[in-house]
Amino acid sequence: MFRLQGSRVLAVDLTGDTVKAKNGSMVAYEGRMAFKKTTGGGEGLRGVVTRRLTGEQMEVMEVSGQGTCFFADRASEINLVSLRGEKMYVEASNLLCTDGGVRTGTSFTGLRGGASGNGLFTTTLEGTGQAAIMSDGPAVVLRVTPQYPLSVDPGAYVAHQGNLRQSFQSGVTFRTLLGEGGGEAFQIRFEGDGLVYVQPSERNTVGGDV
């Protein structure tokens, strides 16, 4: 059972079950807890190899026990997400904690990942349960419907879920080359049906200043 203690600390009530959390993110616990380091995000040997190859590395520990465990990481804002079978895409660096019932994996994001400065691969979450996602400032959740596609700055993108197609939009023209660009030369365009999480802050991206 995930709940927020303030907006920057995650409290997880455990009754003998297991959650996966970012390595070293435990700040306090009550009761009896066991922390076990896992390799490759707890995805087995295949996970170890894939994560090593793709550079989408994730240091994860398994926490199990009885009581309440508190997690936090560099005072980042924490957003709770409930998954009911759908797939969620999130950057490994933004993932704080997942339920034992949520499977993690890696997937190829293409040009979008390259532009957001996070590598060409992203982490996927699948299954039923809760996940805690971190963002710099509280994330804004935006709904995408077929009538209303959404464009997002790659530096502000955190995660998305649902049946979304993403394409890479570039506004680079000859004016950009002259230093007279629109300042928003690259965007990710989301179409379809789903939710997109954006943070009120921009990471430094390749196309950031164009």
Binding site: V140, S151, D153, G183, V198, P200
Partner: peptide, 9 residues
């Protein structure tokens, strides 16, 4: 100001 847009519909 450049780069302050995070998303738009």
């Amino acid at each position: 100001q450049k780069g302050k847009m995070i998303a738009y519909y």
